[in-house]
Lab assay of single mutants.
Amino acid sequence: NQASVVANQLIPISTHLTLVMMRSEVVTPVGIPAEDIPRLVSMQVNRAVPLGTTLMPDMVKGYA
């Protein structure tokens, strides 16, 4: 099972991601792979992401 990136807190819209905001967890459905966490740092979310939500490629500007 592959770990995905999950929000560690509420991430407001247009926030630049930091390591503190993300954790890796095995979830269904599978989202952005956990090994991409370093790549996600300083990218922006294009919507509010609630605590515990799996980050999907379409939620992060410039990821997909």
Rank of each mutant, 00 (worst) to 15 (best):
V41I: 10
T53W: 11
V20L: 13
V60W: 01
A48N: 15
M43A: 08
H16D: 08
M21A: 03
V30G: 08
S24P: 13
S42P: 00
Q44I: 11
K61E: 15
P50M: 07
P33Y: 06
E35G: 07
N46I: 15
A48E: 15
E25A: 12
M43W: 06
V6Q: 03
V26F: 14
I13E: 15
A48R: 09
T54F: 02
V45H: 00
T53P: 02
K61I: 14
I11D: 01
A7M: 04
N8A: 14
T54G: 01
Q9C: 09
A64G: 14
T15W: 07
L17H: 01
Q2M: 11
N1M: 15
P50D: 10
A48Y: 11
A7Q: 01
L17N: 01
S24R: 06
A3C: 10
V49M: 05
V45S: 06
P38C: 14
P38N: 12
V45Q: 01
E35Y: 10
V20Q: 13
L55G: 02
Y63G: 04
G62R: 06
G62D: 14
M21N: 09
N46H: 09
V6F: 00
S14W: 15
A3S: 12
L40G: 00
M59L: 04
G31D: 02
M59K: 01
T28D: 15
V49H: 03
G31C: 03
D58Y: 11
P29A: 04
M21H: 12
V41C: 05
P50E: 09
S24C: 08
L40D: 00
A64L: 14
P29F: 04
E25C: 08
V26E: 15
L10R: 10
V6P: 01
L19H: 12
S4L: 01
N8S: 15
V6E: 01
Y63C: 05
M59T: 06
D58N: 14
G62T: 06
L19D: 06
H16V: 09
T54K: 04
P29Y: 04
H16F: 13
N46M: 10
H16E: 11
R47E: 11
H16A: 15
V30Q: 15
T53A: 14
N46K: 09
V5N: 01
M59E: 01
R23N: 06
I11P: 00
S14T: 09
V5R: 01
V6W: 02
A7H: 02
V5Y: 01
T28V: 10
E25F: 06
T53L: 11
V41L: 11
T53F: 10
G52E: 04
P29R: 04
S14F: 15
I32M: 03
I37S: 03
M43D: 04
Q2H: 11
R47I: 11
N8V: 07
T54W: 00
Q2T: 13
K61G: 09
G62W: 07
P38A: 11
T15D: 03
L55E: 02
P33L: 09
E25L: 08
Q9K: 09
Q2V: 10
H16M: 13
V27K: 09
A7D: 00
D58I: 09
M43E: 04
P57C: 09
E35M: 10
V5F: 03
A48C: 15
T28R: 04
T18N: 05
G52S: 07
S14D: 15
R23C: 05
G52D: 12
R47K: 11
S24W: 06
V41W: 00
V26N: 10
D36N: 11
D58M: 10
T15H: 05
L55T: 01
A48G: 10
N1A: 15
T15P: 02
G31K: 00
P29V: 06
Y63S: 03
L10A: 14
V6M: 04
V60R: 00
L19N: 08
L19S: 11
I37M: 12
V5G: 03
D58K: 07
N8H: 06
